[in-house]
């Protein structure tokens, strides 16, 4: 197990990052350009922006699944090469292996690290219990609800003890109640483990309720961060109750002023 990084160190740093894609008609689409972003160790940063603004692309750069065309990505001060081994990634989509049980899915990261089977199984059971899925170890994904599958995916991510947790609209597909439960669970676990979190969402309320800092991305093409808002709401938070705090509404209004412009711009630019 790694030692917790000293507070204040920079977990993730993007400098002048640019990433483009080939379009089907042979053109080039610049998704991100001149992106500068810093995430301190132990910080919970939420990234909001209109749909199609390249939020997932940015996350993929930090994950090492994509390489920038220009600029650099640093992880704990070292330039990132290949897959980011210090991060885990909670995808928006269902990515559990349907032919493995909940427990086998959670074990996966340990199996890849050649941890002994019994030990991996023991830890997987403990993690399933922590995300509230005791008794569901032997269920297959199709036998679980959408919220339960997300919990399994969360446990699958956390079992490898990542220093950085990348999350791409993980709760977008869930109903409101399940979603709030999951958000509170995430906050509780984050409070205990103090991971660095980069959380992408298009839901501004979710962003404020969860994070220490909200970063607003501009509409694409060539999206980049256009605003940063520290969230100074007291912790530990309850995502439902924190919304009633007057400071929450005030912050929401300030960020929305900026975000609304970008959303409208994205809407007009949309084909």
């Amino acid at each position: 197990m790694r030692l917790a990084s000293p507070p204040g160190t920079c977990a993730v740093r993007l400098q002048g990052c640019r990433r483009s894609f080939r379009t089907p008609d042979g053109g080039v689409y610049v998704a991100l350009d001149r992106v500068d972003l810093e995430v301190r160790a132990g910080e919970f940063v939420a990234l909001v922006g209109p749909t199609g603004c390249g939020k997932s692309t940015l996350l993929n750069l930090v994950a090492g699944l994509l390489q920038p065309d220009a600029g650099r990505v640093e992880v704990f001060g070292a330039p990132l090469e290949g897959i980011n081994r210090r991060a885990s990634y909670l995808f928006q989509q269902d990515v559990l292996l349907p032919w493995k049980t909940a427990e086998e899915n959670v074990m996966l990261g340990l199996v890849f690290r050649r941890v002994r089977r019994e030990e991996a199984r023991r830890q997987a059971r403990a993690w399933l219990e922590r995300v509230g899925l005791r008794g569901f170890e032997n269920r297959y994904p199709h036998q679980l609800s959408g919220g339960m599958r997300k919990r399994v995916a969360l446990a699958q991510n956390l079992i490898v003890n990542p220093e950085i947790l990348l999350m791409d609209e993980p709760f977008a597909a869930l109903d409101v109640q399940t979603r709030q439960l999951m958000e509170n669970d995430l906050l509780r676990i984050w409070q205990e483990e103090r991971k660095t979190v980069l959380f992408v969402t298009h839901d501004l309320e979710e962003a404020i309720a969860l994070s220490d800092r909200v970063v607003v991305l501009s509409a694409g093409p060539a999206a980049r961060p256009v605003g940063e808002f520290p969230v100074e709401l007291p912790r530990p938070r309850d995502v439902t109750e924190v919304r009633l705090d007057p400071a929450f509404g005030e912050l929401f209004r300030r960020i929305w002023e900026l975000l609304r412009g970008e959303v409208l711009r994205a809407f007009r630019l949309a084909p």
Binding site: L65, I83, A87, Y89, V111, F112
Partner: peptide
């Protein structure tokens, strides 16, 4: 995404093939 998820969890090419 399933492949990327396995990769992020630390799968080698052989792990990807097998699992």
């Amino acid at each position: 995404n399933v492949l990327n998820n396995a990769r992020m969890l630390g799968a080698t090419d052989r792990d990807l093939l097998r699992h």
